[in-house]
Design a protein around this nucleic acid. Structure first.
Length: 731
DNA sequence: CTGGACTACGATCCTTTGAGGCAA
DNA sequence: GTTGCCTCTTTGGATCGTAGTCCA
């Protein structure tokens, strides 16, 4: 308002001289008025408010959700393909040939030789730990810590998408292959520039085996292949790094770097002096896999041996790095040079992942324990399920969906290449606060809709459940219940297990109201004791009626949306001085409404002159529903008792409009009414056809007359000159 | 100084049965 | 006289997500 220039009044310009006396005028008779004084501070505040980052619109949110879902599915598919690659016979054979024999034979723990189950279990863990240690410290190196899947913020992905050349529909469909290839190349360049990695076939994995180095993702995948080669039940586990759909808290630019690193890294490196600005350079020097600190304590007596081994390995690693004869070193995965054609300033080195928990890992089935054992092939740890969840919720690696792919049901599956690799959602095993935190980052549940994620996982699950599936389900469920109560108020919101009364929805009631704990003095209840209630009218809309003598579980203020309702409410407020309340009932307080049967073919009508038919069960016995448009007129002409069927409501302009779907008549009248209806419908149709024909004939007459006029004109006045088009002849 | 709680604001969902006038 | 169509009218409140502010 303040900056706008307003003509003070509709005076003409020759009065401008008079205006200039007011002191604020400009030459052309327009003066500037400031309405409502505003200090500079206020103005600044107002502008900042206008320029603030607006909350997402519903359209944005829907778009993000779709992008998130699509990405999740793509990642699932990708992981499934990698999982299948891990079954590749040649790959497994090659890995097995490189494995020192004692490491493999350590898994040979037959119950015949070791009758004690606990002992078998111990031996198995030892063997597994040795394998993981050998793998992570002797055999395989992470060559480039910037390579690997990770979560990217929405804006970053948007930037990448914006930098892509725009594809036309035809290009996407592949008719012009050349330009499509170019675009794919460009896409690949962009993705590798930001830490992506492209493997085309199991052969690519094979190459990494020979190189004995690769990204940490590949490292985990190859370990799965190795474990399968050893005959172990091995799952490829992955934490899907899908693009987040929620609006991110915008981080202040200067802080971004520090915030990106999570606390784990700083903790493990504390004592190295204050984190300086050249932190990145320091980390570039750390070519080795971070040595897990817990190896020693979990491994007791073996520790010294491991240490010496580690030392030699490190030397070997370094030797390899400087060996000029090493062909593979020459092709070290280095970020390609930046192309000047894409001037995105945001294109910088992708963040190191060495401080982040892995995205791919492994689960090995322990027969003696009948449990899946988490193995981290990158850090060389086993049985550390809590080490996979990142500390930060908005870092480069997040944990929302953790999916475990199995090898396949049987060897036959693998050989015959039938769809293998059933998968299970094992997120509960790895998250500490699933209910309070993780579940809220997923695709939100929608009312009256199946949960999207459970629909997706249903596709992946083994159709015939095995005993170990049941056992695992029980384990995961226990872990969810042992998760404990949230520590913060927000955690209780939409928590799958706990509720506070203050977070109840309007129509929700806790019953039975059994307190299971306290949060800051507030009683905590079970989510499973929350029931959703409805008013008696709403139950009727579903074809249910509140049973006799049932008392409402809850009283709430009545809602008034239509004008009529609101007026009634105001009236009541004035008369009695209190708002109209309405009672809510739970489903178990209702039963299916069965209307009284009809007598003598008479269809009862309600006060609106129709019959309520919100559900098929609301049709009275002895009556039929004839859902045809215009049938009421027929029944009326026949003077047969009927009622229009109200099957629902349309709501517009604060007015509820009943949806009428045909009529209800007595069963004995059905034949008569239907016959008459078909007859009248046929008559109406033929009338319509006659009308249509007449219209068509009229048009033909008009056209032919027009043409005749045109021909005559041409004949009389024509010759070589332009007489005009047929169009003009009609004017 | 950090992070949880609270608050403001906008979007979205819930709601659930006209009357009068005019022309065909 | 009946029927169908058009127009008029008025615009809440709970709840949720987001982002900023406040305070322990």
């Amino acid at each position: 308002m303040a900056d706008n220039a307003w003509p003070r009044s509709p005076r003409t310009s020759d009065e401008g001289a008079e205006l200039s006396d007011s002191g604020q005028s400009s030459e052309n008779g327009v003066i500037h008025l400031e309405i409502g004084g505003e200090t500079a501070e206020e103005k600044e505040k107002r502008l900042a408010w206008a320029l603030r980052k607006k909350p997402l619109t519903s359209k944005d949110r829907a778009l993000r959700l779709e992008a998130h879902k699509t990405h999740v599915i793509a990642l699932l598919a990708s992981a499934r393909i990698r999982n299948r690659w891990c079954n590749n016979m040649l790959l497994k054979a090659r890995l097995l040939s490189l494995l020192p024999h004692p490491l493999q034979s350590a898994f040979n723990i037959p119950p015949s030789r070791f009758p004690d189950r606990a002992q078998r279990s111990r031996l198995f863990f030892d063997a597994l730990q040795s394998l993981a240690t050998w793998w992570s410290q002797s055999f395989f190196d992470v060559s480039d810590d910037t390579l690997g899947l990770r979560t990217r913020p929405w804006d970053e992905v948007q930037g990448i998408v914006d930098a892509l050349p725009r594809l036309t529909r035809r290009e996407i469909l592949g008719t012009s292959f050349g330009s499509r290839g170019d675009s794919l190349d460009e896409l690949e360049k962009l993705s590798t520039n930001s830490g992506g990695e492209r493997l085309r076939s199991p052969n690519s994995l094979m190459k990494k085996v020979l190189q004995q180095e690769g990204s940490r993702d590949v490292m985990a995948q190859l370990f799965v292949a190795l474990a399968r080669a050893c005959g172990l039940g091995a799952r490829l586990v992955t934490s899907l790094q899908a693009i987040p759909w929620r609006a991110e808290k915008q981080s202040t630019p200067k802080k971004k770097k520090g915030a990106g690193r999570n606390g784990q890294s700083l903790a493990s490196r504390q004592g190295n002096g204050p984190a300086s600005d050249n932190e990145d350079d320091e980390e570039d020097d750390m070519e080795e896999v971070p040595i897990p600190s817990h190896t020693e304590d979990s491994d007791g007596g073996k520790a010294p041996r491991n240490n010496t081994k580690k030392a030699t390995i490190r030397q070997a690693g370094r030797r390899r790095h400087i060996d000029p004869a090493d062909v593979y070193r020459l092709r070290a995965p280095k970020p390609p040079p930046q192309t000047p054609s894409t001037p995105t300033a945001a294109r910088k080195r992708p963040e190191l992942l060495s401080n982040q928990p892995p995205v791919f890992w492994c689960e090995i089935y322990s027969r003696s324990d009948q449990r899946w054992i988490p193995v981290d092939p990158v850090r060389g740890t086993i049985r550390k399920k809590s080490h996979f969840e990142p500390v930060s919720d908005n870092g480069s690696v997040r944990m929302l969906y953790v999916v475990a792919y199995e090898e396949g049901e049987s060897r036959r599956d693998v050989v015959s290449n039938t769809p293998d690799g059933h998968a299970r959602d094992v997120t509960l095993r790895y998250t500490k606060n699933f209910g309070a935190k993780t579940s809220k980052l997923r695709v939100p549940l929608r009312k009256d809709e199946e949960d999207w994620w459970s629909e997706i996982t249903a596709f992946l699950q083994r159709p015939n459940r095995l005993q170990r599936d049941e056992l695992e389900d029980a384990e995961l469920e226990t872990s969810q219940f042992s998760e404990g109560m949230p520590l913060h108020l927000n955690g209780f919101k939409d928590h799958p297990i706990y509720v506070l009364e203050r977070h109840l929805k309007r129509e929700e009631v806790i019953t039975p109201k059994r307190e299971i704990g306290r949060f800051k003095g507030e009683p905590v209840y079970r989510r499973s004791n929350v029931v959703s209630c409805k008013t008696a009218e709403n139950w009727m809309r579903l074809g249910r009626r509140v049973k006799n003598k049932e008392e409402p579980l809850k009283w709430v203020k009545q809602r008034a949306v239509t004008l009529q309702k609101r007026r009634m409410q105001e009236l009541a407020l004035q008369e009695r001085g209190e708002a109209v309340q309405q009672g809510l009932y739970a489903q178990w307080q209702t039963d299916v409404y069965i209307p009284p049967p009809i007598h003598n073919g008479e269809i009862p009508q309600n006060s609106f002159g129709n019959i309520d038919l919100y559900a098929p069960t609301m049709l009275p016995a002895g009556a039929v529903h004839l859902p045809y448009k215009g049938i009421a007129k027929v029944a009326k002409a026949l003077t047969i008792s009927y009622a229009e069927a109200c099957t629902g409501f349309e709501f517009k302009k604060q007015r509820a409009i009943p949806v009428i779907t045909g009529i209800v008549v007595a069963k004995e009248n059905e034949r008569i009414v239907l016959d008459a209806y078909w007859e009248s419908a046929a008559a109406a149709e033929s009338r319509e056809r006659v009308k249509k024909e007449e219209r068509a004939l009229k048009r033909w007459v008009k056209l032919i007359n027009g043409l005749r006029v045109r021909a005559r004109l041409q004949e009389e006045y024509g010759g070589s000159g332009q007489v005009g088009t047929a169009d003009s002849a009609f004017r």
